[in-house]
């Protein structure tokens, strides 16, 4: 549905030029929720804005719903934009218009007659569950309600694509959850393809099918959300994932080299969460395992376990145990080593 090929964006100012995006290629399937995650300044916002040409790319092609956006301009570009809805971090609602009239705006722009606008807006208000706020002004609404108005407005022209620019970043966790649920429902029920950018890991885990990690204007990794989060390959992704998974106090006592007990990260996904591999390891090898940290979470209803353990054993026993676990489809990684008595310092 969205095809981005060799996209490049360079910002020129008087003296210097800044490369914001470099050789970005992405392909987003129909009815998919595709997330782009990166730290602030990584270029994710620029990338999203290139899709509907709010930002004009320096080179590269953008194809949305079989139309090459990068070949359009003027009235034809405006026409194409109507097929691409957009919601924003700060909602961007018109303060001088009521909720009803905010949602009606895109319909007015295309010149739809009043009674049709009325019906469509009423329908959209029901869809986002705001029928009672119809005549309110934006300042009378909470953040979550404002974003729901934003979503209704973005969906007014029945777009095939919805772009979300940090849509939940200024909302509290609970409201974020309700907005994400709404978006996921719409993606399924309204035949919508969603491209969203965020710096929040939970947003990606909650609703995205696939994710791309962007850093310094380049895509460093992309793929299935479960894969990216359980077995991150690039350094930056790992940092994104690790930062949130290891307690600081444990990180501080980790050493890069032996001596000491090896600290392993064991990741198990899906069916392997049901097999008692760890128990088998302890039975078969002369290994003592001590759980330091761990959790099991569900990424799109797939259980993903992540356990950090300290292995107390001889080094050859350790290698055998690791091999055994790998054969049984667990991903094992040696994070470092800790002293025997590290707990006394904790």
């Amino acid at each position: 549905m969205i095809e981005i090929q060799n996209l490049e964006k360079i910002f020129y100012n008087k003296k210097a030029q800044t490369i914001a995006l470099k050789d970005i290629s992405l392909s987003i399937n129909k009815n998919e929720i595709f997330g782009i995650i990166g730290r602030s300044g990584a270029g994710k916002s620029t990338l999203l804005r290139c899709v509907n040409f709010l930002e004009r790319p320096t080179s590269g092609r953008i194809i949305v719903d079989h139309k090459e956006i990068s070949a359009l301009s003027g009235a034809i570009l405006r026409e194409a934009r109507r097929n691409i809805g957009m919601i924003f971090q700060h909602f961007n609602l018109l303060s001088s218009r009521t909720v009803f009239n905010n949602i009606a705006l895109p319909l007015e722009l295309v010149g739809i007659n009043k009674s049709e606008i009325f019906n469509r807006v009423k329908f959209l208000l029901e869809l986002v569950n705001l029928s009672d706020k119809c005549d309110c002004y934006p300042f009378e609404l909470s953040g979550g309600q404002k974003q729901r108005v934003g979503i209704a407005r973005a969906l007014a022209l029945k777009p095939k694509v919805l772009l979300c620019d940090e849509a939940t970043s200024s909302l509290d966790p609970e409201t974020t959850k309700s907005i994400l649920t709404l978006l996921r429902d719409f993606a399924h029920n309204l035949d919508l393809t969603i491209m969203l950018i965020t710096h929040e890991i939970p947003v990606i885990k909650e609703i995205c099918d696939r994710v791309a990690v962007i850093d310094s204007g380049k895509i460093v990794e992309q793929g299935n959300v479960v894969d990216i989060f359980t077995t991150p390959k690039s350094k930056i992704t790992r940092r994104f994932v690790n930062d949130r998974m290891l307690p600081v106090i444990l990180l501080e006592s980790l050493k890069q080299q032996p001596p000491g007990n090896a600290v392993l990260r064991i990741v198990f996904v899906g069916p392997s969460t049901n097999t008692p591999v760890i128990t088998e390891v302890i039975r078969r090898f002369n290994v003592q395992l001590n759980i330091l940290h761990g959790n099991i979470e569900y990424i799109q209803d797939i259980p993903c376990g992540n356990v950090v353990i300290e292995a107390m054993c001889q080094s050859h026993e350790l290698q055998a145990a690791i091999d055994y676990m790998r054969i049984n489809n667990l991903s094992v990684e040696i994070l470092g080593y800790v002293d025997n008595n590290h707990r006394t310092t904790v």
């Binding site: 509907n52 405006r78 109507r82 691409i84 809805g85 961007n92 722009l109 022209l157």
Partner: peptide
């Protein structure tokens, strides 16, 4: 920006 994204002239 929001208006431009909607296709406003």
């Amino acid at each position: 920006e929001a208006a431009e994204a909607m296709g406003a002239s």
